[in-house]
Design a protein around this nucleic acid. Structure first.
Length: 283
DNA sequence: CTTAGGCCTCGCTT
DNA sequence: AAAGCGAGGCCTA
């Protein structure tokens, strides 16, 4: 068991705000999940984190990176906190941070999430992992790593469909195959997108089937360190229309444009606070 | 460039 | 119980 002191961080809010799909809280108070394909259990006591991982593979540096503890949340909040809406949402979920997840898993997960709902998304991802990932036993339980690009690229669409992906299975399969080809030809890595300007990284992602603006922005924000990415789903659209456009219908394009101008370089953080706030409260 | 319809299924509500 | 509805969008026309 390892320990790590944190500042201005809430494990619960960060794991339960809907950005990650695989964490599960058990009776013993620990959240169980995987970081870097390694099973881990973690809980918070006060401002300290207590965690234990498979073969002790996860160290405090991994934790700091995954939970973005290197960023100064107060600075981020004052940067996006231009109005009362943000202030209200941020007060409601103190310590909520945007995680740094794995790019491939994030991209694939949000392709799957398209036009779906959370229980179903979780079910699909777990089914995929069970079928095409590796099994690892930890703390008396079975864990399955998220399938690699190769593992999915090599499978048949009918097997993907068994995971209840519906029409998304074709998108996921094609994306995996395109990625594999890219990697073979030019030793490409999704992580390399981090070095590009936001617009370039986004247009690179938009080339993959099943990846539109929303999915691309999710991958950019949740796994590639683009804090200005502002994914607009039905909830964000709803809350933005209500809070900033006096309930008038407005295009996603305009919302993104407005948000990135209004909230600035950490617009993605504003998105996550507003999203979570709106999902849990009726205004 | 913008807009409308279809879409695999599942989860949740009548 | 069975059926209808809406779902954390994308693609195509």
């Amino acid at each position: 068991m390892q320990r790590l002191k944190t500042n201005n961080f809430s494990l619960q809010h960060s794991l339960e705000c809907g950005q990650a799909f695989r964490w599960e809280k058990k009776q013993n108070g620990f959240y169980y999940g995987l970081i870097s394909n390694t099973p881990i259990k973690i809980k918070q006591e006060g401002n300290g984190l207590i965690f234990d991982s498979y073969k002790n593979k996860i160290n405090t540096a991994h934790i700091k990176n995954y939970f973005a503890l290197d960023l100064n949340l107060n600075e981020i909040l004052s940067s996006i906190g231009k109005d009362a809406n943000i202030a209200r949402a941020a007060t409601k979920y103190p310590g909520m941070r945007i995680l740094r997840q794995e790019p491939w898993e994030t991209l694939a997960s949000y392709i799957i999430a398209t036009f779906s709902n959370i229980p179903r998304i979780k079910k699909c991802i777990n089914a995929l992992s069970q079928k095409f990932g590796n099994e690892i036993e930890f703390d008396g339980m079975q864990f399955f790593t998220f399938p690699t690009i190769d593992a999915l690229a090599e499978c048949r669409e009918k097997h993907l469909k068994l995971c209840a992906l519906g029409y998304r299975s074709a998108y996921l399969l094609k994306t995996a195959r395109m990625l594999r080809k890219k990697i073979e030809n030019e030793s490409f890595d999704l992580n390399s997108l981090k070095k590009l300007p936001y617009a370039d990284a986004k247009s690179a992602l938009l080339k993959f089937p099943g990846v539109g603006e929303k999915v691309a922005d999710c991958a950019l924000l949740f796994s590639l360190d683009f804090m200005q990415a502002f994914p607009v789903d039905v909830w964000v659209k709803r809350v933005m229309q209500e809070m900033y456009f006096s309930n008038k219908p407005i295009s996603n394009r305009k919302i993104i444009e407005f948000a990135q101008g209004h909230f600035g370089k950490y617009a993605g953080y504003a998105q996550e606070y507003l999203f979570h706030y709106r999902r849990n409260h009726v205004l």
